[in-house]
Computed example of a mutant assay.
Amino acid sequence: MSWKPCALMLAAALILTGCGDDEPDVSAATKPETHTPSAEPTASSSPSPSPTSSPSPTRSVRPKAADGRNLGACKDGECEVEVKTGDMIRLGNRVKAKPRVDWLAVVDISRDGPTFALSSGMTTTAYGGIEINGGLSVDTVYANGKRAIVRLSRIS
């Protein structure tokens, strides 16, 4: 046998099986992706806008009080009303505060909440929520510096 046919068969075998080890190269298919921080877009460099979401309520959007401007709805100590400076909320016998509180007068309204003068002689600002003399809870629902929405509820 001559060396030419053996060389041709050997060349064909090498071409068909490839040169190198017997294992196929799968490194590209199984190599985990790596991310470099510099390749990631940042908020300042990203040209696309961020996804939109529904807007959250802000203090600039004035909600409606359940009882509107009907301050008489507070007589029983259960109401949600819109108040302004100079308003007086009169309370009835169902409010069991000690010492007794017959009325709340709105003397000022800031963006943080209304300031009340109480019939008992005390002055207080309802920053978020307050308890008055163990018988009345006053929660500020909304305030914009001119008007406020307050929720009154009796404490038993």
Rank of each mutant, 00 (worst) to 15 (best):
E78D: 15
K96R: 13
K146M: 03
G121A: 07
W103Y: 12
A28H: 12
D21L: 11
G145S: 09
V106K: 08
A65G: 06
G68N: 05
T124L: 13
S44P: 00
G20W: 01
E80I: 04
H35T: 14
I89H: 02
A97Y: 03
V107C: 03
A117V: 06
D21P: 15
V141H: 03
L8M: 10
N133S: 09
A66I: 13
N93T: 07
F116G: 01
K84D: 04
T58V: 07
V150S: 03
L152S: 04
E80L: 00
T124P: 00
P63N: 04
A73V: 01
T36L: 14
A143R: 05
G121Q: 06
C74V: 06
R111A: 12
S120I: 08
P37W: 10
T125Q: 15
M9N: 11
Y127V: 05
G134R: 08
S120G: 00
R100H: 04
G135L: 03
K75C: 03
D102R: 15
D76E: 13
A43T: 14
A13D: 00
F116W: 02
V138F: 04
L104I: 08
S153G: 10
I155W: 02
D76S: 12
Y142L: 08
G92R: 03
K96E: 07
E80D: 07
V106Q: 01
P32C: 00
P5M: 00
C74H: 06
L118W: 01
T52E: 11
D22Y: 14
L71F: 07
I155F: 04
K146H: 10
V26I: 13
R94D: 11
K96I: 04
A12P: 01
E80G: 06
S153K: 08
F116S: 04
S48H: 09
E78N: 14
E33W: 05
L8H: 06
S48M: 09
W103E: 05
T36G: 08
L16M: 09
A7Q: 09
Y127R: 14
K31A: 12
R154V: 10
S44I: 10
G18V: 01
P55G: 07
G129P: 04
N144F: 10
L10A: 15
K98Y: 09
I89P: 03
G18D: 04
D139Q: 12
A39D: 14
I109K: 01
I109H: 05
W3F: 12
H35R: 15
R62H: 05
A39R: 10
G121D: 05
C19H: 03
G121W: 01
V150A: 00
E40H: 10
A13G: 14
A97G: 06
I109W: 01
G68K: 02
T52Q: 12
G129Y: 02
C19S: 12
Y127M: 06
A11P: 01
M122Y: 05
E33H: 15
G18N: 06
S137T: 10
K31W: 03
T115S: 13
A66Q: 13
D102V: 03
T115V: 05
P63F: 03
W3S: 11
D67W: 03
